[in-house]
Structure formats: C-alpha cells, structure tokens
C-alpha cells in the first residue's frame, strides 16, 4: 500500500465512513473527527508509517480534510 492508501484506510477506520468519496470534506466540521480522533490518527501514523508527528505540529486548519492530511503525511515520509 502506498502512503495515500494507508492514510485513507486509517481515516476510514477512525471515522467509520468512506472518506475517499469526498477528499475535500472538512472532517471536523462534519463531526467525523475530533481531538480524540486526531490523536488516534497521529498514533496510527506512527505505528503504520513510522511518521512521528508531535501533538504541537497538529494545527487543525492544516489537517482538516483527507486531501490535506495525505499531502502532509506524504511530505513527512519523504
């Protein structure tokens, strides 16, 4: 699985929805994610992709849609 697929599968697990249907949906405004979900996302990124994102790096406005998250993570993997 590439990074994008992994991130999407993590997000699908966390939200209980298929996020790939709308990659620009705002996960927080739609109630799919909250702070709890954000932390789980960070932990999953760490365990599944080996990407370390400290909590202070998590600025909500930069992580609020599936597309933004994928871009962020891709940047961190390289």
């Amino acid at each position: 699985m590439d990074v994008k697929e992994t991130v999407i599968s993590i997000l699908n697990d966390l939200t209980g929805n298929d996020v790939s249907e709308d990659m620009d949906t705002n996960l927080f405004d739609s109630g799919l994610m909250d702070s709890m979900g954000s932390v789980q996302l960070l932990l999953e990124l760490q365990s599944q992709l080996g990407v370390n994102v400290p909590v202070s790096e998590f600025v909500r406005s930069e992580w609020d849609t599936p597309n933004k998250i994928v871009t962020k993570v891709e940047g961190l993997v390289d």
């Binding site: 702070s35 709890m36 954000s38 932390v39 789980q40 960070l42 932990l43 909590v55 202070s56 998590f58």
Partner: peptide, 20 residues
C-alpha cells in the same frame, strides 16, 4: 492542544486503559 490531546496521546501510547 496542550492538556487534552497530550493526555490522550500519553494514555493511548502507554495503553493505560483498554477502551478508547
């Protein structure tokens, strides 16, 4: 950002409670 998320992060990482 500085209390809730960090606390959740620490508790989940160290698996202090089973349930989310």
């Amino acid at each position: 950002d500085f209390v809730f998320m960090r606390l959740v992060f620490a508790m989940m990482k160290n698996k202090i409670f089973k349930s989310r």
